[in-house]
């Protein structure tokens, strides 16, 4: 079991993965405007988000990540595979 999982962990990753540093987040909500299907403001300043959004949201996520005024969104883009188109490069976490 452990071995099988070890393989999964090291395999190329096909999904967008996000984590927002909610200590750093100040609810400027730029991500909610630009990727409303992924990020949502709950009440005045609590941020909700789907940490593994649908790949169709790629463009929106890209805009949300770039526009965060405090650069609180860490994202891992899907890795390039043979049958894949051009994907954004992985960016360092804030």
């Amino acid at each position: 079991m452990a071995r099988a999982h070890a393989l999964d962990v090291c395999a190329p990753r096909a999904r967008i993965r996000l984590v927002v540093d909610l200590n750093r987040c100040q609810a400027y909500a730029q991500c909610c405007f630009l990727a409303p299907g992924v990020f949502e403001l709950h009440g005045e300043e609590a941020l909700w988000y789907d940490p593994e959004p649908d790949p169709a949201q790629r463009e929106h996520v890209l805009r949300a990540v770039a526009s965060c005024p405090v650069q609180a969104i860490a994202v891992e883009w899907p890795e390039r595979t043979d049958d894949d188109g051009v994907e954004a490069p992985p960016r360092r976490s804030p």
Partner: peptide, 25 residues
């Protein structure tokens, strides 16, 4: 129920291809 538990895998800041994982033990 806004998203499944499987969505919570943390993004990697480094690929970590050459790290040995011993999970489930």
């Amino acid at each position: 129920g806004r998203f499944p538990a499987a969505h919570t895998a943390l993004p990697r800041c480094e690929p970590l291809r050459d790290v040995e994982w011993r999970l489930g033990v």
